[in-house]
Amino acid sequence: MSFLDGLAALAPTIGFFVLAVIILVSAWMVSHARRITHAAFFMVLVFTGVAGVFVLLGADFLAGGQVLVYVGAIAVMFLFAIMVSDLKEISDAETRARGAGTGSAAAGGTGTRKVWFVLAGLVTVGFAGLVLAALARSGLPAGAVGAAAGPGTTAPIARELFTTFLVPFELASVVLLVAMVGAIVLVAREREEEVE
């Protein structure tokens, strides 16, 4: 009984670490998976994992939003884009050609690419390390932030969104509209030319 109680108390922590591992491994695979379609599926996994962490952090509305927007819309958009055009073949073919060592246009040679990878890695590690160091030095308060069942966040968020953040909210919708129109204009141009 007491063991089970302990386990139940530990469950969020364990869940967090499991999710963290899933997120990081999948994120790594997004850039390293052989095929672009696989990368897209790993991306979905990252999004879902982050949604799980949101739940653990008591942001239930956001977790729902995350699943809807990222998994439901953005990831699907990626997959559609990959499938509708021949992106898949082009990118896979090019990746293979690249791996065979024909070299890329600008980087020139596999040796250069290795140098580039090292440089990119150094910058990334340096940046992340410095951010962590800055956080450590800035005296971030340690505090348990695990899930504590409370009232849902949907209602408070809605209240704030439609009062305090009304103007940004409306602007965001305009941004979305503009993006939508822009995307349609960009993609539809070719068909227009065909009609002519």
Binding site: A20, A27, V30, V46, T124, F127, A128, A142, V145, A147
Partner: peptide, 23 residues
């Protein structure tokens, strides 16, 4: 779950994404 854990996860995810975008 400590705040630190969540922040570190965020930083690491960012770093992995950044490295991916660069490579």
């Amino acid at each position: 779950i400590d705040l630190h854990h969540a922040i570190v996860l965020g930083v690491l995810l960012f770093a992995v994404g950044l490295y991916g975008a660069l490579r």
